[in-house]
């Protein structure tokens, strides 16, 4: 197992973070004393069997849940004890979310959904600014459509546009391809890859080795602990089936299978 690189430029740092659900004998340590540095400008996939705590880890890192112990830092800012106002501000300006269920607001058009975070932040985005972002996810012709008039893949791309419209420091994605067919999933992953290549920090929870293979690094979780770490450096270089960054879906699937045993 490799050690995490020294945090000169980490997007998210977790220090001894613990989250316990329930009390007494029924208590479950969903996340157990996790130390983790996720690099700025990199795409990290978090994998693990069901119930391994990967979604909880994401929620803790994004400030959606309060840690019971340890500290959470986003871009050097300690958010562990942040109040509601600071966390709201954080969600508005520094982080973005994409979820398996697209969580768009059904009554608003694609354009309105994308503009929403900016408007909540008190800005009045220009029409072209919003359309540009929608065009960047390939939906320049869908601005006036409402979520129910779009396919799942298109809805997820609107969600993606909404997440990046504020130019967040970190993009959190929870099973972003979980509800999509393979073609739509590939489109979304291609978009994420392009964003990462352009310097966007991405943290993605997934159980799909194919999706994880598109990331720059993979963190494996089991029973709330980080048990393994895989980066492009671990991959057999120049392997014919390796993706551009060197991770291989087979390798990831094998590791995952090993930890699921």
């Amino acid at each position: 197992m490799t050690t995490t690189t020294a945090a000169t430029a980490t997007a998210v740092s977790l220090r001894g973070v613990t989250k316990v659900y329930g009390k007494g004998a029924a208590a479950v340590r969903a996340v157990d004393a996790v130390d983790l540095d996720l690099p700025r400008g990199g795409w990290t996939a978090v994998m693990g069997p069901s119930g391994s705590g990967k979604s909880t880890l994401l929620h803790l890192a994004a400030g959606l849940e309060h840690a019971d112990a340890g500290r959470v830092l986003i871009g050097g800012t300690d958010i562990t004890d942040a109040g509601d106002r600071e966390l709201t501000d954080l969600r508005r300006t520094r982080i973005g979310f994409v979820f398996q269920s697209f969580n768009l607001i059904g009554s608003l058009t694609a354009e309105q959904n994308v503009a929403l975070p900016l408007r909540l932040g008190g800005r009045r985005p220009s029409r072209s600014e919003v359309r540009e972002v929608l065009a960047s996810v390939g939906l320049g012709d869908r601005v006036k459509h409402r979520p129910r008039e779009m396919s799942g893949g298109q809805q997820q791309r609107v969600a993606l546009a909404r997440a990046i419209v504020t130019r967040p420091e970190v993009l959190f994605a929870d099973e972003p391809t979980g509800a999509l067919d393979s073609a739509a999933a590939r489109t979304v992953l291609d978009l994420l890859r392009a964003m990462a290549d352009a310097g966007q920090s991405i943290v993605m929870v997934t159980h799909d080795p194919g999706a994880a293979a598109r990331a720059d690094a993979v963190v494996f979780l089991r029973d709330g602990r980080v048990v393994d770490h895989l980066t492009g450096a671990d991959a057999p270089s120049k392997h014919p089936t390796a993706t551009q960054n060197g991770l291989k879906a087979d390798t990831i699937a094998d590791r995952l299978a090993a930890w699921e045993r």
Binding site: D84, R91, F97, N103, I105, L116, P117, L120
Partner: peptide, 15 residues
């Protein structure tokens, strides 16, 4: 749920 969604994308309590 709708309201939680607004919170998720950056809506404050006051908003």
């Amino acid at each position: 749920r709708d309201l939680a969604l607004l919170r998720l994308v950056g809506g404050s309590r006051g908003q």
